[in-house]
Design a binder for these strands. Structure first.
Lengths: 212, 212
DNA sequence: TCTGTTGTTGAACGTGTGTATAGCGAGCCA
DNA sequence: TGGCTCGCTATACACACGTTCAACAACAGA
């Protein structure tokens, strides 16, 4: 006596979109660029092909939504690990580094996802906008830490904007190298030491020429 | 009185492969990931579709060949701009920076090409191998400069390997940021200043903790 | 229990993909 | 000038893609 199997279950559009985003991210992590596929994502989410175009005008919009979800999630997790009022600016930078150099972020699978996003920036305004927004977020946060550091140590504050660019680039570069070469030539501990040493350089006035 | 138009011209396989690689790079620069297409590349090269599979077992091998050509070309141009015997180690680093931060390398179109390569690293052993080889090349060159710098300035040489990782990451990160955000928040001059300041930090002993 | 709304399905369509292959023809060499 | 080699063309094939749309069915409210 089999039940008349229910063919599907309805859920709220907002919740369904969330599920689709999660399935899309799993597809991107597993298949890279080939994971940008209505059929693969629908299969991963356990729904029919047509459902994606019912909730999104095109697959690009789903990917853009996925990018925004992932990028903001990581940003919040990393910056949320830093108590903005406790300790010195130097302490806050160290806390930021510890959160940034965590397995959540330093995961080679993540690069496969990110590379897809980067490749779509030029053609998709939605993804470009999401990228610019999170990028500005990191710049703002790092500039805040460095401005505090400059104030506490009496360094010239004119260097702050550019120094934040440099630190951001260093962190991105370490992440990139880590993800591209899984058989690593350096440890997470060493990666943190590189970032800390960069701040040491700032504290020793090595970045004075940026003020010119 | 029209000539009986020649339908094609034969050239040496080696030369033809070179033309195909150049066409592939133009396609990647223009169309990004969508440029990885036998039909697009064949059209760009002005040859028939089947010719690519005549010269390469699969399109992935053509892309790998293109990657190797481009990566080695840039590597040779950048490292070739540094006279390995003249001046101090610091001079050589500065010369390297000037060559690296040139319009040849700092071209947003180049990122579109590179992103395609990165996305294929996981699935294509040929591309992975080409990447590892050029990566090792940069590591070797930078380690050389930094070892000379350490010897000239009496710094502990144990830090050299890891410092090269840091410098390489910084350069990659600056390049990435430059290419991802064409409406730049910094100039090439400032980018060079960031790299020079990093070396200042090394010279001031900021990277002593790497030796631990 | 019936009805209306709407989230969901799945087949269909046109396009683009990589590869295989049969045959054409350009250019070399005797 | 003939013939032969092989670089090259162009068609064909099977498959995957994104999108569309008419029909279906789950669930809320009456």
């Amino acid at each position: 006596m089999t039940q008349p199997a229910r063919k599907f279950t309805r859920i709220q559009p907002e919740l369904r979109r969330e599920h689709l985003v999660e399935a899309a991210l799993r597809c991107l992590a597993e298949h890279g660029h080939a994971g940008v596929s209505v059929r693969k994502i629908a299969a991963e989410a356990g729904v029919s092909i047509g459902l994606i175009n019912h909730h999104y005008d095109s697959i690009d919009q789903l990917i853009a939504h996925a990018y925004e979800t992932l990028a903001i999630g990581i940003f919040n997790r990393v910056t949320g690990a830093v108590d903005p009022s406790a300790g010195t600016a130097r302490d806050r930078l160290s806390a930021f580094f510890r959160a940034y150099f965590s397995p959540d972020v330093f995961d080679p699978k993540l690069l496969g996802v990110w590379v897809v996003f980067w490749s779509m920036i030029r053609h998709s305004p939605a993804i470009k906008a999401a990228h610019d927004r999170t990028n500005a977020g990191y710049a703002r946060v790092l500039e805040g830490y460095l401005a505090d550091l400059a104030a506490e140590n009496g360094l010239p504050p004119t260097t702050v904007r550019l120094a934040a660019v440099g630190l951001s680039a260093l962190l991105d570069g370490i992440w990139l190298q880590w993800c591209l070469t899984p058989e690593q030539a350096f440890t997470i501990h060493e990666a943190i030491a590189l970032a800390e040493s960069w701040v040491d350089g700032v504290a020793r006035g090595a970045y004075g020429r940026l003020a010119s």
